[in-house]
Design a protein around this nucleic acid. Structure first.
Length: 215
DNA sequence: GAGTCTCA
DNA sequence: GGGC
């Protein structure tokens, strides 16, 4: 059985948000149990942190990473690093189920051959948010971004290529995958403050996995 | 360098 | 939109 067959996308309801941007509703649900089972060990080895921004503030989202590279922020700036800043330890390896999910979602959205080398793990407790920004710290902008939502729902803000473009508001729920690349690769995006709630499996939190090709 | 930030 |  091939990797792609493991993530049979007959499941997903596709919604084209813009050229190059595809929402795959429920794409991760078939492997929900394995995805969630992998999380505790990853977080034990690379604990969530509220990283400081270069401007000296603190992000409301708590972050960890797995894979060869991890996205980090500090007073020096944003970058990808092969080790966790505080511990100096390499990031935990990207679980095979993570990689297969990301590769299959990318292929399903029209980006075959995606080779993620970084997975940012974001934890949103109620009230946490992510301001509008572009993902532009990656070396290869030909590779798409793959985002997988777990736990509490959140309103995703999907904007255009200019900061001033009014973003669309898209409700992302447990199991949804969102892929953007090509002409949408540098679209501004963010997450509105997460509302209080309880998810049956994850409790009072939203976990987002973002797969990138950093280098 | 920074607008993944908050306040006007 | 400004400041570390």
């Amino acid at each position: 059985m091939s990797n792609l067959e493991l993530f049979d996308d007959e499941w997903a309801r596709r919604e084209q948000l813009a050229p190059g941007a595809m929402l795959l509703r429920g794409f991760a649900l078939p492997h929900e149990v394995e995805l969630l089972a992998a999380l505790p060990e990853l977080i034990a080895r690379a604990p969530f942190r509220h990283m400081p921004t270069p401007g000296g503030r603190r992000m409301s989202v708590a972050m960890s990473n797995c894979g060869r590279y991890g996205w980090v922020s500090d007073r020096q700036g944003y970058r990808y690093a092969s080790a966790a800043p505080l511990s100096g330890q390499p990031w935990p390896a990207m679980p095979a189920v993570f990689r297969r999910l990301a590769v299959a979602a990318a292929a399903s959205a029209g980006f075959p051959g995606f080779e993620p080398d970084a997975c940012l793990i974001n934890r949103y407790l109620p009230g946490a948010r992510m301001g509008l920004h572009q993902d532009k710290d990656e070396r290869d902008l030909a590779a798409p971004i793959v985002s997988v939502s777990l736990g509490l729902p959140a309103v995703f803000l999907f904007g255009g290529l200019r900061r001033g473009d009014r973003p669309a508001r898209i409700l992302l729920e447990h199991g949804d995958a969102l892929v953007w690349g090509g002409p949408a690769r540098l679209c501004y995006h963010g997450v509105a403050p997460v509302k209080k709630g309880q998810h049956p499996r994850l409790g009072e939190q939203r976990i987002n996995l973002t797969f990138r090709k950093a280098r």
